[in-house]
């Protein structure tokens, strides 16, 4: 009995060393790929599709409400913006420090924005001049709506270092 080969072995007669290694490595390759795909899919799980955050487009009243050469802080609590009017030009500044995202304070007497976290300072036009902030404050898109109010769109931002402050959407000229 011991000398006869079991019949099941004949079915595997073609299994050479090469084909065995090939199928094993294919198997491991598929297994690894499936693991990576599964992990990536799980990682995607952490990026939600809908957010419960304030709207990015909103109206902030008539341009005449803002005095020339002033910084308006009324919308800071609600939308985290400053409305800065510089003579005939209105810009919307993002009240988020470009260093680490704290909310700077407007110091009226010193005429500058000062960040409480690491002491970055910005002039009224948003340009950084002291402290660790690497770049000026960002500006948001603004336009005049049909009812004469200023409409802000926080989804569009303009950065000075990229030369975007010349963009006509980044400021509002009052004639």
């Amino acid at each position: 009995m011991a000398s006869t080969t079991p019949p099941t072995r004949t079915a595997n007669a073609q299994l050479t060393r090469r084909s065995f290694l090939e199928s094993v490595s294919t198997g491991w390759f598929i297994f690894t790929a499936a693991c990576i795909a599964g992990l990536s899919a799980t990682a995607r799980f952490f990026f939600p599709n809908d957010l419960f955050e304030p709207p990015t487009r909103f109206k902030i009243g008539l341009p005449e409400n803002y005095a020339p050469n002033s910084v308006d802080e009324n919308w800071k609590a609600k939308y985290r913006i400053w409305v800065v009017r510089d003579g005939e030009k209105i810009v919307i500044l993002n009240a988020t420090c470009t260093h680490l995202g704290c909310t700077p304070n407007w110091l009226l007497t010193e005429g500058k924005f000062k960040c409480p976290c690491h002491g970055s300072g910005f002039y009224r036009d948003g340009i950084n001049f002291e402290g660790p902030a690497p770049r000026p404050l960002e500006r948001f898109k603004l336009s005049l709506a049909a009812d004469g109010q200023i409409e802000v769109d926080k989804s569009r931002k303009y950065q000075k270092e990229l030369g975007q402050w010349n963009d006509p959407d980044s400021f509002l000229k009052i004639s």
Partner: peptide, 28 residues
């Protein structure tokens, strides 16, 4: 919590304050 008002000074947890001090000299 109030996202509009940053306390002054605003500090990280104390065990990260070495890192926060580093932020004065190097970018984030």
């Amino acid at each position: 919590a109030n996202p509009a008002v940053t306390p002054n000074p605003s500090k990280a947890p104390w065990y990260f304050l070495g890192l926060q001090e580093m932020l004065v000299y190097y970018d984030p």
